[in-house]
Nucleic acid binder design. Structure first.
Lengths: 329, 329
DNA sequence: CTGAAAGCGCTTACAG
DNA sequence: CTGAAAGCGCTTACAG
């Protein structure tokens, strides 16, 4: 491996001149050519550690994810990766395996790795998070969750749930089970439920019950079975596509026809919603685009630019086969 | 941010002593205590760039993946991540978005980032790959593919396909479509087909046709439809679960009952195979464990240890609902 | 436009 | 066991 010193010697110039060539300082045409040739011949590439040590302007962005095996995460990572690559940044992924404390640890350890900034796919923001942000003095952008003190790129959970609620009512459903998740998760647990509640508030003749489950499909299968036995709704509105998949599986296992015997809706627009039969009616979020925009926003921040504190990305309802239209009957 | 110099001053010792404390050199109990206290008070953490620059023993492992949105990739990454974390290594992920040339580029760029070694989830190994390995002089381990000159951790594609073939025959299927992928992909395109062929070779009264598709589900849906119309097999043996999902979807769309009208098998053991209805009969590979072992193997190599050139991980057939037993009828 | 020199924060022989 | 010093490969004022 060559160093900048080797190149300088070979080109007959000083190290600083080579450095200037590399970093776009002013240089005469003839020395530029000489250095260029040597670099091409040797295949020289600067040692990025030495660069970062000295320049203190690292080009690595830390991305903290709660899990690797989720559709939403994968899509967001793809968006981030693409944008970062375009702007010559590298992505360092830190996986927390859904252990919240590890998110905070990761902020500190990424800080030691001298990342330029952090993209955080958080589940909840605790005081420990806030403390880590301020102690490391790293720019942080949240994806998928929001907090009044931190930059964020969120999906429009509330509006999407509201529209989905209206859709369900418009299809004549009046006995509805809402299957949500913990309220610790503001986006998924709170916002989606609130939007849905807002939609049904105006509707008088409507029986709605609220249930809570985890993000695991297995748990959704179980609780759906209970819900059917005890409440027998015409539709189950699920807070995520994973949960909706569990509900669908439960219906299949019980031999209940979907959508005629039980209607189901999801949230997210995961790829598998179009694989199952019938296709799942769901709300599609633009995960990849959100990741891309968040990455762009972080780079803007890094370059001293400004972005809104809160950025909201779009959604749309995808009508497929799991919602029966009771109005036509 | 503190430096080792600050800590040394505060503790009243030399920088080298602090360094020794950090790296486990011999040190007296009293100075150990002093330094320990100061480090705890200040929250000092060494600058990893400076460490890597000097020590030339970086603790970052580069992982090159063809895509982020695949079940197998996610699982393997989780396994790698876990193992690396345990051994105090960091994982730097480089996504190639299925562009083969980017794999080679990534090897070089990870080399510039001074990674200690590379874990490569390759699709095929070209001469350009081999050249990159030798030029960068980085230890490389292949996951999921093999090559006679490179360390690899592979799934037992051949044996699994053989066993699956026997299973299909044992269930009385004699008119079989095998839906595979390009032979550029040795593991998925060649090994699985060969294993399957070996299984049916002994069987006389058997009509088998071979088809080829891509890794995309959409393409599988289309070609399955054609296969049914033109050949009408009793079973379609698919080279991946994604393809099998497409075949299942195609059957649903055509109104053909699965498994009685058409049986289907997959490969991989993706999570969604248990979500669809009926559950997909498939071969489960231990992706996460393979990732874990590959990471461990790389670290062994880094520490001067030895590992076998080729490492094979286990599989098992998961019987679910997509294969009809023709023998009982 | 170009070069000599200092310095980034560590580690590691080498002496003591 | 401990410290002074050199050096890892860069960048960046500062002079010229």
């Amino acid at each position: 491996m060559n160093t900048i010193e080797d190149i300088a010697r070979l080109a007959g110039v000083a190290k600083s001149t080579v450095s200037r060539y590399l970093n776009g300082g002013s240089i005469s045409e003839s020395t530029r050519k000489k250095i260029e040739r040597i670099i091409n011949e040797t295949g020289y590439a600067p040692n990025s550690f030495a660069q970062s040590l000295k320049a203190k302007k690292p080009n690595i962005i830390g991305t903290i994810v709660p899990r690797l095996d989720s559709f939403a995460t994968s899509q967001i990572l793809m968006g981030i990766d693409e944008q970062l690559r375009e702007q010559n940044y590298q992505m360092l992924i830190s996986n927390t395996s859904q252990v919240v404390e590890r998110e905070v640890e990761s902020v500190y350890s990424l800080s030691n790795q001298k990342v330029a900034g952090i993209l955080l796919l958080a589940t909840e923001i605790t005081n420990a998070h806030l403390k880590a942000f301020s102690e490391t003095e790293l720019p942080v952008i949240l994806i998928g969750q929001q907090h009044e003190k931190v930059y964020s790129y969120v999906h429009n959970d509330d509006a999407a749930a509201f529209e989905l609620g209206k859709y369900v009512l418009a299809h004549g459903h009046r006995k509805i089970a809402y299957l949500g998740v913990t309220e610790k998760d503001i986006a998924v647990g709170v916002k989606r439920k609130e939007g849905f509640k807002r939609a049904i508030r105006a509707q008088g003749d409507c029986e709605v019950r609220f249930y809570e489950t985890t993000f695991q499909m297995e748990d959704a299968i179980e609780i759906t079975s209970t819900i059917i036995d005890s409440f027998n709704p015409s539709i189950i509105v699920c807070a995520t596509d994973n949960i909706a998949m569990g509900a669908l599986k439960a219906a299949h296992l019980k031999g209940i026809p979907v959508p005629s015997g039980l209607s189901i809706t999801g949230f997210g627009g995961y790829a598998m919603t179009n694989i199952v039969h019938p296709g799942m009616t769901t709300v599609k979020f633009e995960y990849e685009e959100a990741g891309r925009q968040a990455a762009e926003g972080l780079i803007t921040l890094l370059n001293g630019g400004e972005i809104p504190l809160k950025n909201i990305s779009d959604y749309r309802i995808i009508e497929r086969g799991t919602v029966d239209n009771k109005m036509t009957k």
